[in-house]
Design a protein around this nucleic acid. Sequence first.
RNA 1: GCCCCCGUAGCUCAGGUGGAUAGAGCACCAGAUUCCUAAUCUGGGUGCCGCAUGUUCGAGUCAUGCCGGGGGCACCA
Length: 558
Amino acid sequence: MKKRLDDLLRATVEYCFDAGLLKRGPIPEYVIEVPNNAAHGHFATNLAMTFASTQRRRPLDIASTIVDNLKDEQGILESTKIAGPGFINFKIRAREWRKLLVQILRERADYGRSLAGQGEKVIVEFVSANPTGPLHLGHGRGAAIGDTLCRILSFCGYRVEREFYINDAGEQIRFLGESIYSRFRQIRDPDYPFPEKGYHGDYILDLAAAVSRDLDLETLDREEAITLCAEKGKAIMLSEIREDLTRFRVDFDSWYSEMDLHNSGLLEDTLKAVRRASYLFEEDGALWIRTSEMGDDKDRVIRKSDGRFTYFASDIAYHLQKHERGFTRAIDIWGADHHGYIPRIKASLTAHGIPEDWLSVMLIQLVKLWEGGEEIRMSKRAGTFVTLRELMDDVGVDAVRFVFLTKNHESPLDFDMDLVRKQDSENPVYYVQYAHARICSIFRKAEAEGMVLPAEPGDLLGGLVLEEELDLIRTMSLFPSLLRDISLTLEPHRLTYYLTDLAALFHRYFNLGTKTPEHRIITSDSNLTQARLWLVDGVRIVVANGLRLLGIGAPEKM
RNA sequence: GCCCCCGUAGCUCAGGUGGAUAGAGCACCAGAUUCCUAAUCUGGGUGCCGCAUGUUCGAGUCAUGCCGGGGGCACCA
């Protein structure tokens, strides 16, 4: 609808140019928006105001010139008003809104889908948890945001690859092995020392038990045993991580191992490439990359003086790999504590001639858990943390995913266990899901009363005349552009707000019937009943599509 | 010291790439069910949008500085 209005306005301006009513020149950037005040109509544009400076005329004059010459060939406008400092406010005929409902009913599960992304190849890397422990809340938030974003991007016509980067080559894995081994030895010898940088969580005990079942740790020498513990432990953790993610409805297309990066020689190749670009230098026995010339605040070490590579080296190689794999765009979702890495990664990409905006990094802020009015403090090292698995057991996948998307990812999130456990309208996820269930219930009732909807709504929708009914359609019509906006701004949380709004509109509409029986959806007038059933079917479609993009179920009964 | 994020109603937070009179939920009070699910709804009121300059027709939104809170700085991962 916005597009049609835009075409109409441009045609009008062209006409005014031809007729000499406006000085010919470039049309300035302007917006068409849905005003937050309903009295300002369905759409408003600031066109006349942005025109003012180049036309050297008062915005109000320009507005009336435009309004007097509107090229509304198809008669979509019901009224046009000039208001305030020079806004033009439009109302669209009800007939046009009803046509949009027809479109929703036709497209069904595809409603909202678009080709906006033009098949652009995007790689989204998220979660990427170290396989040294179970997934915790922070990973869950990243997983929910990343997965929903991917679903939306795909729906908007991008070719999306979801990737999990496995940090399986560094010191941390060694500490994991030492921790497991130490716990094993402590079974016999409680005084056996535990590594200072080890992992204290109880899950290490389980790992020790599992590893020692398969291997005779007793007979191996310490080094050998630790290496094996590390390998086995890593494999077990990784498979648990996969299980948790599957249960959380997050599927990855690829799992990229840092170890492979080393073994396949890609790391060495990368270094050669960097060297060719002459951004490397040696100092104090270490190998450095001159990222400071590309916007980083200092140079960074790539290979330490002990001969081992830093993680940064793998990160550079990994990102160059992404680029070589043909992705025209990359999105990384990291914990906010990694923000310091952005400049150096971008700098090293720049050194290879990769444009700065090829990579977008989304930083996910902290999750704090609250229960009984108190914060539950968490620390992975100390082993006091709530895992994603425990959270799923406690409150369910739907609620967890929804809550993780109720805030901008750049804001810290307070996760209130008491609220999320509630299964009533205070819990936003139930509020939205219930809208869907309620509509299904209405349909069951209609069927029980022998109501059958024809295949196409035809002219029946003319019965939809209430402001509340047209409001619902208008809100539904925003869905496709909302998804496009989300894919551009990378702000998937906006979808939960939209669905909550739509659900509220629907519940309010439904409740009209409790006061005024003739506003009930199922009435004695069969034509009107059918029209209203089509309307709420539209709502059901949009809610279901939205929930699907959030990875949340749309129940038919609650 | 440098970098990132946050600061909007009593609380938790939205605020659609700068628009008109800044919103929602919770909390609080009062009400609604012979009815398609009361897992719902209706009504009642709040704001120096942290402060200050600037950019412009117009700023919660952009820029700069400051204040307050959180996080991060490594030849750690």
